[in-house]
Amino acid sequence: MEAVEYFEVECPEKAGGDYYRRIADVVLLDHNLIRVVLKLHIFIDPKVPLFVAGGVTRKLPGIVRLRDFADVNIQDRKVTISIGNEAYLAPLLQILWKKYGKDHVEQPDRFTIILYLDEEESRSLEDLPVFDPSESIYKDLIYALQVIQPEGFKVRRQYYGNGRFYLVASEDTLPEDIEDIVRQKFSLMGESL
């Protein structure tokens, strides 16, 4: 966990806390998330029982737009999109199909898409947001935290965005002041929620 600036596991049972430190380390490594996390604080109290994991992410890659991975060629009403990186083809097609209908999106081969659009529409096409990597990274992060948490904690609350994330989980109904607890844990890292 050298890549992570702050990493603490807080637990009333020392032995259990040490095991969970190792578990968190292994899980984040296995899910390729070590580079994403800047700070992480985990709090486990098996007596309550309560699991709180909160942290701060590094700067995440921005939104991928159409111009980032394809060339757009406009001739009158005919718009030809030549795909450079196939990784974003599927989300792009989904967006185009939804917007213009499947009948109006031609795909003569894997790397070419042809549309017939008005001038106004085709002008803004290059800036079309196709894929937001941060969304999937946050989802992966929350999933990894669910793997780390002790099993059987079925009552959960999660939050992500703005460079912050947290997951709280318990077997029983979450305490009403749960957000205060989370804020307190964030202040231990020198951050605020």
């Binding site: 049972e13 032995a15 259990g16 095991y19 969970y20 486990i44 098996p46 007596k47 029982p49 002790p150 099993e151």
Partner: peptide
């Protein structure tokens, strides 16, 4: 109960 012996693998916390 149909086995000769049962090995129980439980977690990391004494309380649990």
């Amino acid at each position: 109960n149909e086995h000769d012996l049962a090995v129980y693998l439980l977690g990391d916390f004494e309380t649990c």
